[in-house]
Design a protein around this nucleic acid. Sequence first.
DNA 1: CAGTCGATGTACT
DNA 2: GTACATCGACTGG
Length: 202
Amino acid sequence: MPRQSPSILPLSFYVRPTLDVARDLLGKILVRRIGRTVISGRIVEVEAYLGERDEASHAFRGKTRRNEVMFRSGGHLYVYFTYGMHYCMNVVTEEEGTAGAVLIRAIEPLDGVDAMRKRRGLHVREHDLTNGPAKCCQAFGIDGEDNGRSLVGPDIRLTDAPVLPERLLEQTRRIGITRGKEQEWRFSVRGNPFVSRHSLSR
DNA sequence: CAGTCGATGTACT
DNA sequence: GTACATCGACTGG
């Protein structure tokens, strides 16, 4: 039985500075509906990617066919394909015309764990279901079809949750990139077992 | 535990 | 051509 449905995050949540949205996304609930199946989880790790002034951002060199969604108004989903086999999902931020997105890097599973395991692999341990950006997409059934999708629609949405206590907010450098490694634009829930490891932060 | 490496398709130069 | 916002399998300690 799915848990009660709290309020959907309004568009005004997304149409703000990317770093603010990134930090505030921690703890929020991602809800995915595929037919009758509901998959949900708590966001525990994200990274902010800005526009022109962020050399690690897809939008660094301006608008292209791939990154077009990053320039839309906040509240859309930006999904891209990488390494020949993986998808990653981002929450688009800022107002129309200003690029910005927040990469969803790790999620703590809530509802639909069986559905996640069916997609990820039946023998995958629970803490390996969603501890990475491509794993999150696979578990939640997100792919290129979902690029540009509204986050206030029926298929995928974010719902509100209490603000994370300050002492649980961890801010480190982004991982898995070659440029723009200086800025501490990765946010995660301190000590949460579902956060992707990797972190040699600093 | 940490480090290395191949897989595999596409966007962009 | 090259790089890639990754993952999983493998190695060695």
